[in-house]
């Protein structure tokens, strides 16, 4: 069979591409395949998703064991993506998936990001104020516990009021989402 692109050289690469439900048979020679790099799996960052699903499948010890069906039953409540689907696509369906699959995520993140699992970079300016507020509240709650354990109730009461005020603030600004 001749290459569909140049119609000159023998086609050596044969595959089916499905784009938006439309099936296409593609036959290319080496040279044209190289020129049309986008057709080759692995050339457009596609490989990263494959590699990633490799890492994830590693997480599931035996592919066809009965426990697999139990594992893959876990589904994201918001978008409906199952862990199995994620493992195959290498991509999450929505922001909620990060919470849904949180437990399985960290071991994989460690491998991909040199052992890191926690973000320490930029915090968005607008929603960031809420996060700072939350951090402040958590800090105060810790202090409150310390005061209580030392039976310093006057201090504790002051902190409790402060926390309540901050929580009210957080509720108001977070209410718009």
């Amino acid at each position: 069979m001749l290459c569909h692109e140049c119609n000159k050289r023998e086609a050596t690469l044969h595959f089916t591409k499905i784009l938006n439900g439309e099936k296409m048979e593609i036959h290319l020679c080496d040279q044209c395949a190289r020129e049309k790099g986008e057709y080759l799996p692995g050339s457009n960052g596609f490989s990263i998703h494959q590699l990633l699903s490799g890492l994830l499948n590693f997480e599931q010890p035996i592919q066809n064991s009965p426990s697999r069906s139990l594992q893959s039953e876990q589904q994201c409540k918001k978008c409906g993506m199952s862990f199995h689907q994620f493992a195959r696509a290498g991509r999450f369906g929505c922001a909620e998936c990060y919470k849904t699959f949180n437990l399985k995520l960290d071991p994989m993140l460690k491998r991909v990001h040199s052992g890191n699992t926690v973000h320490i970079g930029k915090i968005p300016k607008r929603i960031g104020t809420d996060i700072q507020l939350q951090r402040q509240i958590e800090q105060l709650k810790k202090q409150l516990q310390q005061h209580i354990s030392k039976e310093e109730f006057e201090e504790a009461a002051k902190l409790r009021d402060e926390i309540r005020a901050l929580e009210k603030l957080a509720e108001q600004s977070g209410g718009e989402d």
């Binding site: 998703h49 990633l52 999450f92 922001a95 990060y98 991909v112 973000h119 970079g121 930029k122």
Partner: peptide, 11 residues
């Protein structure tokens, strides 16, 4: 996300 940062489709 406070812990995971900007959430992207690919981890």
């Amino acid at each position: 996300d406070e812990k995971k940062g900007y959430l992207t489709s690919c981890p």
